[in-house]
C-alpha cells in the first residue's frame, strides 16, 4: 500500500530544521539552564530518526553521507581526550577549566573546556542512537 505522504515529507523537512535548532540551543544552554550534551545529542538523534522514518534510509544516506559509527568513536575520543588534556597542563585527569573573555561583537563570553567534553558526549549519543537504529532496520 503506497500512501501519499507529500504533506508528511514537507512538514518533516521543515520540522527537522526546527528540531536541529532546538538541539543546538539545548546543547549550549546546558551550562546555565536545562539542556546539555545528553539532551542536545538525543534531540539531534531524534531529528535524524524522524527523517529516517519519513523518508527511506537510502535517500537519507545519500543526503547525509556520514558514518555514524565514526561519529560515536570520535565523540568518545573527544571526551576521553579532554581528560588527558588536563594532564598536559599538570592538572588531575579530567580537570575542567573555565574563564570569561571579552570578545568583540559578542561581548563578555564564557569559554570552558566542559563544552568540548559535552560535545564529545553529544556526538557519542547521536552516533550510537543512529547506529543502533540503522543497524537494526538495515538488516535483511
Amino acid at each position: 500500500m503506497k500512501i501519499n505522504n507529500v504533506i508528511l515529507r514537507t512538514v518533516a523537512k521543515l520540522v527537522f530544521f526546527i528540531i536541529l535548532t532546538l538541539a543546538v540551543y539545548l546543547f549550549f544552554a546546558g551550562h546555565n539552564s536545562p539542556g546539555g550534551g545528553f539532551s542536545g545529542g538525543l534531540v539531534l538523534a531524534s531529528a535524524l530518526v524522524l527523517l529516517f522514518i519519513v523518508f527511506d534510509i537510502e535517500t537519507i544516506q545519500k543526503g547525509i553521507p556520514i558514518d555514524f559509527k565514526l561519529v560515536a568513536a570520535f565523540g568518545a575520543f573527544l571526551s576521553v581526550g579532554t581528560g588527558f588534556g588536563a594532564l598536559v597542563f599538570g592538572e588531575n585527569f579530567l580537570t575542567q577549566a573555565f574563564d570569561y573573555f571579552n570578545l568583540p561583537f559578542f561581548g563578555e563570553i564564557e569559554l570552558t573546556t566542559v563544552t568540548i567534553f559535552e560535545a564529545g558526549v553529544a556526538l557519542v549519543v547521536v552516533g550510537v542512537v543512529v547506529t543502533i537504529l540503522l543497524s537494526i532496520s538495515e538488516d535483511e
Partner: peptide, 26 residues
C-alpha cells in the same frame, strides 16, 4: 562556572562517571 548544577556535576565534578558512561554507550 556553570549555573546548571546537574550539568556541572555531569561535566565537571563527576566527569569521570560521564566519560565512562560515554564509553559504555559506545
Amino acid at each position: 562556572g556553570g549555573k546548571n548544577m546537574v550539568n556541572a556535576i555531569l561535566g565537571d565534578f563527576r566527569a569521570f562517571d560521564t566519560m565512562l558512561e560515554v564509553v559504555v554507550l559506545l
